[in-house]
Design a protein around this nucleic acid. Structure first.
Lengths: 207, 207
DNA sequence: TGTACATCAGTGAACGCGCGTTCACTGATGTAC
DNA sequence: TGTACATCAGTGAACGCGCGTTCACTGATGTAC
């Protein structure tokens, strides 16, 4: 693949379109994400993107898929293989921070039911789901990992959205991190206030 | 306020617009929610809605506010004043069901940061937040209610969104309810697998 | 090394569409006397 | 009970806009010989 020559052939218009789309998304929200605007920002004619994306939906899907990949990297960077409450909390903070740093992208990623056509999206979702399950398995060896990993993902995802929607304090990164850590730790300690009999059915026999 | 006469004066166009907007929202998603479409569906000229809504945003805000009010009613109907894990779980199921029954409305409600201008929206949010806090206070008398009510709301909200986004099984209402109940109960029992020292800082001294 | 040619990645004009919003208007309503 | 009139809630034509998408095209690239 040759480099951009300055005229005509762009070099890597597909990547340039994705970059432009990401910028537009954060500037104007998903309503501002049009093929024409993307082309304009990439400095190319209105129809050039059609060489790389079948239609507007294809562009949006590609952006979402890129977002999933970045989210996975982001979480792995926070901790490659968490196995304690504190490490899990660190990953949760990274998740929420990702959402707050790219609010419009995050919304696009979770905007529509994952169409079964796009294996790219389904695969990325499954990857995140598996990652969470792994964390839960290591952190809570005695607990059924299915129910709890749903719980953990939902909790973190909900924290991200409530912050995004301005329902929680987002004035400083520290405030956000503190809230997320407190919520994750509260997950571990809520049952301390309840009788042990309530817990029984959810704890594995061998635990 | 007089009844619709069949011609000209509508009678209650504002309510008719809101109804039309809700229908359009669920049929076409939030992209289909235009003032013109609303007017068309209400059987009225394109500009008639301007008598009742300053602009498109005002319409959307009114729809969202209506959604908040209905959500609050829905939760209260599930249980007026929950104070046990099972009762909390029932409210959580009602929350998720609300979202799944009106997916587009639910997204609109949580689509944008709550603009401080609209006290209608802020008030509705605060009401939900207080409601959750009350539940937590009654259900977990020994735990700091601030951190835990954030946790609970985030968990339930996250469950709603993950279901909405097709990340969890939504094939039957029973499957959804089961998952939500399991997640809420997992919240109570997760710490059973951990040492009590972890829990210490989050449990009130007098507990 | 040079040339012919297929392929690829752009261009730019054009289409029809639905949108938000403005404006001057008109028909219906309700109230004061 | 009747009339005059202010107010209110609609109408409909018109505006300019940006959009997605099509089409025939053309300039650049790379490959076969």
């Amino acid at each position: 693949m040759s480099q951009a020559s300055g005229t005509y052939h762009h070099g890597d218009l597909r990547a340039a379109c994705l970059r432009a789309a990401r910028e537009l998304l954060e500037e104007d929200g998903s309503a501002g994400l049009s093929l024409r605007a993307v082309a304009r920002r990439a400095g190319v004619s209105a129809t050039a993107p059609y060489r790389h994306f079948a239609d507007r939906d294809a562009l949006v899907s590609a952006v979402a898929a890129q977002g999933y990949r970045e989210l996975a990297e982001h979480l792995a960077a926070a901790h490659p293989s968490p196995s304690t409450p504190d490490e899990l909390a660190a990953v949760a903070v990274a998740y929420v921070r990702f959402a707050l740093e790219r609010p419009a992208l995050f919304r696009v990623m979770f905007a529509e039911p994952c169409d079964p056509d796009s294996e790219e999206r389904v695969g990325a979702t499954t990857a995140i789901s598996e990652y969470v399950r792994g964390i839960v398995r290591r952190t809570f060896p005695g607990v059924d990992p299915d129910a709890l990993s749903t719980t953990v993902w939902a909790l973190v995802h909900g924290l991200a959205f409530l912050h995004l929607d301005g329902k929680l304090d987002t004035s400083t990164p520290e405030a956000v991190a503190g809230q997320v850590r407190a919520a994750v730790h509260a997950l571990f300690t809520a049952s301390a206030a309840l009788s042990p009999t309530t817990a029984a059915p959810y704890v594995r026999a061998e635990a």
